[in-house]
């Protein structure tokens, strides 16, 4: 009996090692393909972009896995909480208030921390009532959806009032892009992400138990309410950090978690968390490499990821019927 388990674990870990190797390879390719000009400058620029992609990939992947487990739903992403809609609304409001020129002049660190604080505050306002009695996860998610719709309509309203030049600045700010990453922000986002991922990793066994369902998890000694609220705040912090760094990446999480699940064939979080993080790194860094060198464009990776993510989402919905 235990042999079966050990065999399985070996197989999962073998796959993880393979994924790590692919991720390294993609990273090396991103750093080295088509190097020319001032080498020191180019390498520094690319290293910053690579670091940003790794951070965002890991944050989005881990937060999506945790969110899906807590919500017991494999086809939702943390964007259902309305955080990215709030982000887009904040940027629109800022451009509206300060004009495109003023918006571009905001201190990036201040901008990052402001965005991070606003998004985590919304999440806390949503989740803290959970700690009191009479709490319903579905109700909270629905509140997030409604708030998201509200922010999106306000965004549309403000965007209509913007002049075309300001609108162009806004478009640049609300589509995820790794082309301009401030090194100062990398450190800030890095600290938040590393801390968040460490907490998620420590909770991996509890996450396994949570995926058995609320009642079973309580029966096995998990203090459900507190654990779920804590994990959701963690998700919000990770999502906020990555969104404030590069912009919304709604579908990336859905895409990489379902891919990772199919590759490793297990829901065990000790395997699934690193697998999803590695998949995210491969997709982001690989996608950016292809975008830069094969497509030769300065296009936005975010748009590509959302396009592919949307198709994968539909495919999962259709394939979902067979299980």
């Amino acid at each position: 009996m235990t042999d079966v388990v050990i065999q399985r674990v070996m197989r999962h870990e073998g796959r993880l090692v393979m994924m790590a190797a692919v991720a390294m390879l993609v990273g090396v390719a991103f750093m080295t393909i088509g190097l020319r000009g001032n080498l020191a400058f180019v390498i520094e620029l690319r290293a910053a972009r690579l670091a940003a992609m790794v951070l965002v990939g890991v944050a989005v992947a881990v937060s999506t896995v945790v969110f899906q487990t807590v919500c017991a739903n494999r086809i939702i992403t943390p964007s259902i909480m309305g955080l990215d809609a709030l982000y887009v609304f904040c940027q629109t409001a800022l451009v509206f208030a300060l004009s495109g020129f003023g918006f571009a002049g905001i201190d990036p660190r201040l901008h990052f921390l402001g965005n991070f604080t606003v998004m985590t505050s919304l999440a806390l306002a949503l989740f803290l009532p959970m700690l009191r009695r009479r709490f319903d996860l579905t109700l909270m998610l629905l509140t997030g959806v409604v708030l998201g719709v509200l922010f999106r309509s306000l965004t549309t309203l403000l965007a209509r009032l913007l002049d075309p030049n300001d609108f162009a600045v806004l478009q640049g700010a609300v589509f995820a892009s790794f082309n301009t990453v401030e090194p100062d922000l990398l450190l800030l986002a890095g600290v938040i992400t590393v801390a968040g991922v460490a907490i998620a990793w420590r909770a991996r066994h509890i996450l396994d138990v949570l995926s058995l369902g609320t009642d079973t998890a309580i029966g096995l000694g998990v203090a459900w309410r507190g654990t779920a609220a804590g994990l959701l705040v963690l998700v919000a912090a990770l999502v906020s950090a990555s969104t404030a760094l590069v912009g919304p990446m709604a579908f990336l999480g859905l895409l990489v978690v379902s891919l990772a699940e199919r590759i490793v064939g297990t829901n065990r979080h000790a395997i699934l968390l690193p697998a999803a993080a590695l998949t995210a790194i491969i997709v982001l860094v690989g996608g950016q490499t292809v975008l830069q060198h094969a497509l030769g464009g300065e296009g936005s990776l975010g748009i590509v990821v959302e396009f592919v993510g949307g198709i994968v989402f539909l495919a999962i919905l259709f394939a979902g019927g067979r299980r």
């Binding site: 029966g219 000694g221 459900w224």
Partner: peptide, 28 residues
């Protein structure tokens, strides 16, 4: 009482707890 402490003295099996996770019998 902390949930964990209770879990060591009391076990519950509910009627039809759906197991959503893809698990093997031995893991469950």
């Amino acid at each position: 009482t902390p949930s964990r402490q209770l879990a060591k003295i009391m076990a519950i099996l509910r009627q039809d707890p759906g197991v959503a996770s893809r698990l093997r019998v031995v893991e469950l």
